[in-house]
Amino acid sequence: MFRRAVLSAAILCGVASAPAFAQCDTSFTIANRSNAVVNELYFNPTRLTNWGPDRLGQNVLAPGNSVDFRPSPGGNYDFKVVFANGRELERRGVDLCAVSTVTVSGNGIAVQ
């Protein structure tokens, strides 16, 4: 009886100390629905203070094209695109657990 009580308490403590967030599917698609080429794409967890590397690398994202990503961990992310003409768009605080598509248009960055 005592062992069962100790085991139950240990299990409950383990559950209570588990992270408050659940794992989620962080995969998403970036779709370029603008009329311009995206030369650079950046995204990072919101808690970070720099953009990090260009996620397209040597590639570009032409109008009408899309590319898939699966970052880790989940949570809120900030996005930035730089068009071929140098124009920049940003979208901050996107919950990757709730998003499957990030759409770039001439008016901004939308998520769904």
Rank of each mutant, 00 (worst) to 15 (best):
L89R: 14
N76E: 11
R91H: 09
T103P: 03
L56Q: 05
A110M: 10
F43W: 06
S105P: 09
L56V: 07
Q58W: 06
S17A: 14
A110W: 07
T46H: 03
R3V: 04
R92C: 05
G93M: 11
D68M: 11
T49A: 13
N65S: 12
A22P: 01
D25M: 01
R87S: 13
R47F: 03
N65P: 01
S72C: 00
L89H: 14
G75V: 01
E40L: 08
A5W: 04
Q23S: 13
L89Y: 14
I109H: 09
L96M: 03
S105Y: 04
N85I: 02
L56M: 07
R87V: 09
N76V: 00
V37W: 02
V94H: 10
V38P: 02
L56R: 05
S27Q: 07
G108M: 12
Q23A: 13
Y77H: 04
T26D: 02
V104L: 11
R92E: 13
D54F: 03
R33C: 08
N35K: 12
D68T: 10
V111L: 08
N39P: 04
T26V: 09
V104I: 15
P71N: 08
L89Q: 15
G74N: 02
T49P: 08
G106S: 14
L96D: 00
Q58A: 15
R70S: 09
V81I: 15
N65A: 13
N76Q: 08
T101F: 00
